[in-house]
Write a protein that binds this DNA or RNA. Structure first.
Ligand SMILES: [Zn+2]
Length: 493
DNA sequence: CGCATTTGACCAGCGC
DNA sequence: GCGCTGGTCAAATGCG
């Protein structure tokens, strides 16, 4: 779901929370934010039982007063019954009694002052809550998208089983049906996530510029002056388009990702004897998704596939994996690199988010013109033996076995969830759930905290590697390109 | 014959 | 302004 007003970048949220929490009451305020979302939890960080249990009195004063109450003075509840504003005075009654003898006017002024301060704080808190709500909404949407994908996989599996039982036809027929089973439109909300981030820069370009430029009818007048406008828009959109490149060992000419690709160009890259092939998604007429396939100059066994753009059409489950992976990764990139001052910091942060364990496995380059996420899977000789660390986060697979059952999708289907987890982790540091799971040390160094959790990287590597390795022998799904563009033919310069 | 690939040419951005 | 490079187009070619 691309929200026209760009959702507040998580990283910014993180800093905001730090600013609010650090100076005075680090824990209570954050906890209270969490409390705002989950109405059930009355106790803050440690409280088991009574502490912050919302009472009927609490309802009368509203959530704002609860903020004050959470600061440790629950005994003041009685005073709050009269007026909500008196809570503030009551909270500082101890100090005010000291000054009592001086003048009641100054006391009054001070009270007003504090009232003002509290009001501003309240507004701030409300604003923050709003932001967090938006983030929560987005996370929920992502979750729903994944659920839809899960359902699709289930349905597909059931259909396949039925087909196997009813008629033991040849495999080709089944694969044709496999193509026809497209993902529900809802998933496109996930897939188009980058589109939302694109909207930060220039919204209509992606659809109008790209779409027009790619439609065959409009290509006729490409050289003409009338097309210059759309071309400009398209290039502008391209400038900030994030890319996701996957490095993996493969002898095939192209990795199988479930999409239909049509080769539209081949160039000799600078400093690489192997040509670079350009592919375009042909599953829909105006689909803007492209990918580049190139062999590594040093080791021709390494295939570098770079994805760009988002599908504007429903996808078969097998293709959804990679599509949502790339879009999620791209969204991570763009959401982090958007603010100008934080760009560098965020890119580093994102790099460590994606790559907690080993720096050699994935890198994030936010440098111009394209921010790129690179997943280097060449270091994992046997992905299936990847150790599964038992701690910390549990990647929210709805039902992993279902995924593994269907041959084609198998591990590839895990990709979006894994990346979704990465996003989830990122949002964690933005303040969503920080208070409950992070201690102070981790608060100071969130990237390190993430780095201690190798689940993301491990699962990601295993998924992609397995996909690469497993899909080639016979599971070639929809790819129409065959592998005869191997290194030697140097065509273009 | 239709479709995908090949491949030379074209275009735009960027650095000098 | 010029050359280099990446990316794209589209006519030519190949294939089933
Ligand atoms: Zn597509």
């Amino acid at each position: 779901m691309d929200t026209p007003p760009p959702p507040p970048p998580p990283t910014i949220q993180f800093s905001v929370n730090l600013n609010c929490a650090a100076p005075e009451n680090p824990n209570e305020r954050v906890i209270d934010e969490m409390d705002f979302f989950s109405d059930k939890k009355g106790d803050g960080g440690g409280g088991s039982g009574g502490g912050g249990e919302p009472t009927s009195d609490d309802d009368a004063t509203g959530g704002a007063n609860r903020t004050v109450l959470m600061s440790g003075q629950s005994s003041l509840l009685d005073f709050n019954i009269n007026t909500s504003l008196h809570l503030l005075t009551a909270a500082n009654s101890n100090q005010s009694t000291v000054d009592d003898g001086i003048s009641s006017n100054s006391d009054h002024r001070r009270l007003e002052n504090e009232l003002r301060i509290m009001k501003t704080k309240l507004e701030k808190a409300n604003l923050e809550n709003q932001h967090l709500r938006e983030m929560l909404k987005q996370a929920t949407n992502d979750y729903h998208g994944l659920q839809m994908q899960m359902q699709t996989l289930k349905q597909q599996q059931q259909q396949q089983q039925q087909e196997q039982q009813n008629n033991h036809q040849n495999i080709e027929e089944r694969q044709n049906r496999h193509e026809n089973i497209v993902a529900p439109r809802q998933f496109m909300d996930l897939g188009l996530a980058v589109g939302a981030t694109d909207g930060i820069v220039d919204d209509p370009d992606k659809e109008i510029g790209r779409g027009d430029d790619l439609s065959p009818e409009n290509r006729v007048s490409r050289v003409g002056a009338n097309s210059s406008r759309s071309v400009d828009q398209a290039t502008e959109a391209t400038i900030r388009k994030a890319r996701v490149s996957v490095r993996a060992r493969s002898e095939a000419s192209m990795i199988t990702d479930g999409c239909q690709w049509r080769k539209y160009g081949q160039k000799m890259a600078k400093g690489n004897p192997c040509p670079r092939a350009y592919y375009r998604c042909t599953m829909a007429a105006g689909c803007p998704v492209r990918k580049q396939v190139q062999r590594c100059a040093d080791d021709r066994g390494i295939l570098i596939t770079t994805y760009e753009g988002n599908h504007n059409h429903p996808l078969p489950p097998a293709a959804m994996a990679m599509a949502s992976t790339t879009s999620s990764a791209a969204r991570m990139l763009l959401s982090g690199s958007m603010p100008s001052t934080d760009g560098i910091i965020n890119s580093n942060f994102l790099a460590r988010t994606l790559l907690p364990c080993s720096s050699s496995m994935a890198t994030i380059s936010a440098s111009a013109p394209f921010p790129t996420v690179t997943l280097d899977l060449t270091q994992t000789p046997n992905p299936l033996q990847f150790p599964r660390p038992p701690n910390n986060f549990t990647i929210p697979f709805p039902n992993p076995q279902q995924n593994l059952d269907s041959a084609n999708n198998s591990v590839a289907a895990l990709l979006p969830q894994i990346f979704g987890q990465a996003l989830y982790n990122q949002s964690k540091f933005s303040g969503l759930q920080m208070s409950q799971e992070m201690d102070q040390n981790q608060l100071n160094n969130p990237a390190n905290a993430l780095a201690t959790d190798p689940n993301v990287t491990a699962a990601l590597a295993a998924a992609i590697s397995s996909m690469l390795g497993g899909s080639f022998p016979n599971n070639g799904i929809n790819n129409t390109t065959n592998g005869n563009n191997n290194g030697n033919d140097n065509n273009n310069m």
